[in-house]
Design a protein around this nucleic acid. Structure first.
Lengths: 348, 348
DNA sequence: CTGTTAGCGCCTTCAT
DNA sequence: ATGAAGGCGCTAACAG
């Protein structure tokens, strides 16, 4: 074995060493069937002798494909997001595609990425997580020349884009219904801003479900029972403390995410309210810590949503999709200790 | 505006429209100073008219650089990892480099990635997170023809690789010392397997610190006070329950991560032990939920470690580094309610 | 079956 | 200051 050569070997070096033409080497690499066994093994020998690895960039240029998939995602430290990303990575690991992650932390970057990433020259496909298109984004995305799959994101006027979503209206309804069935009539809802610059829509849809459940039970909606602010545990805590300060305070809180539900639990603790006896709490997502806290919540298939999105993307590369898919993943109500009292939350 | 052309515009189209040569357009794109103001604006006009964007793949092939950085990381759902990744993404967002994330979930993949990713043809630089090289990996990595920065990873015989690490021995020592100063003599240590196929080393080093602190205080090490298993909350819970079953049970536990510390808290709850009165608990990392739980812990600069690693990598592209850096980030003891009793943990 | 050739789109000399 | 030409490494179409 000689010293490592300065330049990596190219297909030409292999051809020379194996005494064949460039084309043959290329065929071997892409295991085309039309190569004799003899030459094939000669080529393989040369390849391993030279420690040859095809240059992906050159390959991409020639193929006209980037062999790359982009994921555009907000705040990838949020548990619900990383779980989705894990599903994506998992499905992609076995493919020959690279995954590029674009993390959105400002609105400006959101817009920039939505405009500039979905281009044929950049990537072969795009996954957009939890960022619903605004009205202006819709035509841009629908005109994009690469396949796109929205995950946990939607827009009513979309017709040409694949989506993997969860029925947040239904999830919100189920959560609220659960509280109603436990006998609650004064039910608060804590969420992010329903209207926000990123256009996160899940809180909005869950709110709809919340109201549907209320009205289905003949309970009038009271705006003072809805608190909205930035996402986060502390923000939720602040909101709910204000809400619980009223005479006619809610006896149950539905939080739009588990993270916010934790804030609610914290508020309850500070105010000396027992959970669930004095206050029932339900979250959304079923992130890992929810189980530990005994938090009742609405589980969504986060990991699976990522996997499914990749599958759809790969299928769309092969034109297998007659028309855009809109797949709705199920939710599941997970009842734990913050809404029912046996071995109550407070023992902790 | 015409219909979107089937093929994106190329540099040639721009040249034709602007009535200049290819080279000139290229110069404008890369804003070379040697282009007259007049032609430059003509070219810019053509560019925006054609909606031209340079093809990155072609650019890369021509430049001989991939404009891509790889991050190889285990389990990117662990909070400590995502926080590091956020730092990486943050520093890279403003650069012209793309970030490819390789998530390691099996040992086989770990080895595969360490061998195949750090190649000039694939990426311009590599960040390896929390995966310390094994003896066999060292020569491979040191011979790699691209710059590499290890984050939270190390190996005694490394000399040519940049590293951003935390002094885990010291962190373990400080944590244990804190418990000793509170009067504890029977101190348990709960960790991942000190020897594991992934070669995670942090638990090992923290263990060293733990033992240093013990011996510094004249406390003999007792092997029954060390529990190791897979990483995870439940595993930790199981371990500590066994440990606490003894007559001579520990009065304090140092857990190698906050996640494991949570398992310890859970065990304490199940066993009816009050924290910190009956059992003090300290974790490591200061992940987000630690504050909520009032968990005493050792904070490390996770986000910053990612940022710093990128800075080092970018500097090494420009040959600015005389010799490999090994940067040690500080840790900080965060004292909360699981080791001191005012407004004890149990009120929760 | 296999060798040869013409691009893929861009950057970079080298002349002018 | 600018145009022309060669080359980055590979794939694919075309001859044989």
């Amino acid at each position: 074995m000689e010293a490592v050569p300065n330049k990596p070997a190219t297909i030409r070096d292999v051809a020379r060493l194996a005494e064949v033409g460039l084309g043959t080497v290329s065929r071997v690499i892409n295991d085309s069937p039309q190569v004799s066994k003899a030459t094939r093994s000669r080529v393989h020998k040369a390849i391993s002798e030279l420690n040859y690895v095809p240059n992906p960039t050159a390959r991409r240029l020639s193929l006209g494909r980037t062999m790359t998939i982009a994921a555009i995602t907000p705040f990838f430290t949020r548990p619900s997001i990383t779980e989705r990303l894990r599903g994506i990575e998992n499905s992609l690991a076995e493919s020959e595609y690279d995954l590029i992650i674009f993390n959105v932390e400002t609105v400006a970057r959101r817009d920039e990425l939505i405009r500039e990433v979905p281009r044929r020259e950049r990537v072969d496909g795009v996954l957009i997580l939890s960022l619903s298109p605004c009205d202006e984004d819709v035509p841009i995305l629908e005109k994009a020349d690469v396949p796109i799959v929205l995950v946990d994101a939607n827009h009513p006027s979309l017709t040409r884009l694949n989506r993997v979503i969860v029925d947040d209206v239904e999830g919100g309804r189920v959560a609220t219904q659960h509280l109603i069935e436990l006998g609650h009539r004064r039910i608060g809802y804590i969420s992010d801003f329903l209207d926000n610059a990123f256009n996160f829509t899940s809180s909005r849809y869950r709110f709809q479900g919340y109201r549907q459940a209320l009205s289905g039970a003949g309970i009038p909606f009271r705006s003072e029972y809805h608190g909205q602010s930035e996402h986060g545990r502390y923000e939720a805590e602040r909101l709910v403390k204000m809400m619980l300060n009223n005479e006619d305070r809610p006896t149950a809180i539905f939080a739009a995410s588990d993270t916010q539900a934790i804030g609610v639990l914290e508020a309850a603790r500070d105010l000396g309210l027992r959970v669930p006896d004095d206050l029932s709490v339900i979250g959304y997502d079923d992130i890992e810590v929810a189980e530990y806290l005994g938090l009742t919540t609405v589980r969504q298939l986060l990991f699976e949503s990522g996997q499914r999105a990749v599958e759809i993307l790969l299928e769309s590369f092969e034109q297998k999709l007659a028309e855009p898919l809109c797949e709705v993943l199920p939710t599941e109500l997970i009842i734990r200790k913050t809404t029912t009292s046996r071995s109550g939350y407070l023992e902790f």
